[in-house]
Amino acid sequence: MNIFRLCGDMSHLAAIIILLLKMWKTRSVAGISGKSQILFATVFTARYLDLFTSFISIYNTCMKVFFIGTVYFTIYLIYMKFKATYDSNHDSFRVEFLIVPVGGLAFLVNHEFAPLEIIWTFSIYLESVAILPQLFMISKTGEAETITSHYLFALGSYRALYLCNWIYRYYAEGFFDLIAVVAGVVQTILYCDFFYLYITKVMKGKKISLPA
């Protein structure tokens, strides 16, 4: 563990808590993409299959349980409890255009042609594009609530911090995983446009409103 990875995990944790607070306080899931949350649930389920088989640390296990538990609770809030506020018309990204290519790529490019390794690779590739339905929804509605912007900023920062973690681990431990790094770079790049809007607007107290 290093400071970059710890900050990354905390940023990820903060994003999930911000999202849950937004939903619970406003009792609304307006502006939130249910499809992205379903993709995140797939990512966590595929990545944490070893939750019960391999023990890394208390921290690792607690975080995995928390991430899996909260993402399914978020899906419950979107599609059941606050279903009336779910904007399905604007949440229209075709996720099959993500899952099929990512699934194929995981078969072709991986470290080892073994079931658990391919599933893990699939979760890494899927996570890098899982936010697209959410960003697509914001571009369609033309705006994002400020609290949703904070959620996205924390979520985008998490993988950017992981990139720093991999740089650190490369020099400190000689550790390097090309698949995780490339997917992490793609994932962070997808947020750049949003980061720009967040820093130039939200930090000045304005709302994010894209030219619709």
Partner: peptide, 10 residues
């Protein structure tokens, strides 16, 4: 083998 190492990350 990098595949073994990375599994200690979330």
């Amino acid at each position: 083998d990098p595949a073994e190492l990375v599994k200690d990350e979330l």
